[in-house]
């Protein structure tokens, strides 16, 4: 690991993800973060849905690169990404999606990607294109900081956010090193499992957030299993941001961009004034 600054802290100058979360905090609420896979069902729809999310209350947009072997994803997202790939999605199109959303909105846009597509393009080449498209950074579900030396270096140089994951199983030692390696925010996995709506995210999530804050993280956002405004409200009471994925993918699948907009409005009612907690 490099000796770069601890940049999920207040000194995260230039971090778009941090800025988006801090803006929500200044409004006394938790940030709302929405995920959609790029190219489902096509690139233009992803851009339109991303813009709709940004205009209806989403502080941060997370677009995923469909990948052949998504081991952290549950059935709904798997099916969407398989469809995106069979519709011909190529990795380079992610930059058009990012640019399409950032050109029309102020929302920070992060790319969620398994690591091999980035490695295949070349970490530097990928990062430079992402930065040029206006992207904020990367969320990397199967990249741990221990294997990320090149990405740590390049992201620091280009001012891109590095969102690593922490889990209920993460040891205190790994919690510290992962928080230190992160930039923008730390992604707290709410449960031991894969993506997908759950009726309850359980007590583990609050403990992970507390552990991450204790390890020095300024911004900790919770994902996996969150699908309703009530859950957003519950989690927003102790986390700095709440991440919704599967529910939005299902909404897009079943009702198109309008349904995404409607769900976003509903979810954002969960972050309405006074729901912010989270700050250590």
């Amino acid at each position: 690991m490099t000796s770069t600054v601890q940049s999920s802290g207040p000194g995260a100058t230039g971090s778009r993800a941090a800025a988006a979360i801090e803006r929500a905090r200044s409004e006394n609420r938790a940030a709302l973060i929405g995920y959609l896979p790029a190219g489902f069902p096509d690139v233009q729809t992803t851009i339109d849905a991303g813009i709709a999310m940004a205009r209806n209350g989403m502080d941060l947009i997370e677009v995923g690169i469909p990948y052949s072997d998504p081991v952290m994803d549950g059935r709904v997202i798997q099916e969407a990404t398989v469809e995106a790939l069979s519709n011909g999605f190529t990795v380079s199109e992610i930059f058009a999606v990012v640019e399409g959303i950032t050109r029309s909105t102020d929302a920070a846009v992060l790319v969620m990607t398994y690591w091999n597509p980035v490695m295949r393009m070349g970490v530097r080449a990928f990062a430079e294109r992402l930065a040029a498209a206006g992207g904020a950074g990367l969320i990397t579900p199967d990249l741990i900081p221990d294997e990320a030396s090149e990405w740590l270096e390049v992201s620091e140089e280009l001012g891109l956010d590095r969102v690593f994951l922490v889990a209920p199983s993460t040891s205190p030692e790994r919690m510290r090193s992962t928080v230190e390696a992160s930039r923008g925010f730390v992604y707290a996995v709410s449960v031991m499992g894969v993506t997908g709506a759950r009726s309850s995210v359980g007590a583990a999530a609050e403990a992970v957030v507390a552990a991450a804050h204790e390890a020095g993280a300024e911004r900790v956002c919770v994902g996996l299993g969150v699908s309703t405004a009530a859950q957003v409200r519950e989690i927003g009471a102790y986390a700095d941001g709440v991440i919704v994925g599967t529910a939005l993918v299902a909404a897009l699948r079943d009702g198109g961009v309008d349904a995404v907009a409607e769900l976003t409005r509903e979810l954002s009612s969960g972050t309405a004034h006074g729901s912010a907690g989270g700050h250590p």
Binding site: V71, M72, W115, P141, D142, L143, I144, D146, E147, F164, L165, V166, A167, P168, S169, T170, S171, R174, T178, V189, M192
Partner: peptide
Amino acid sequence: GGRWMPESLIAALD
């Protein structure tokens, strides 16, 4: 080699 795995599984690998 290495460990190109989700953080959730690192404790089990350890």
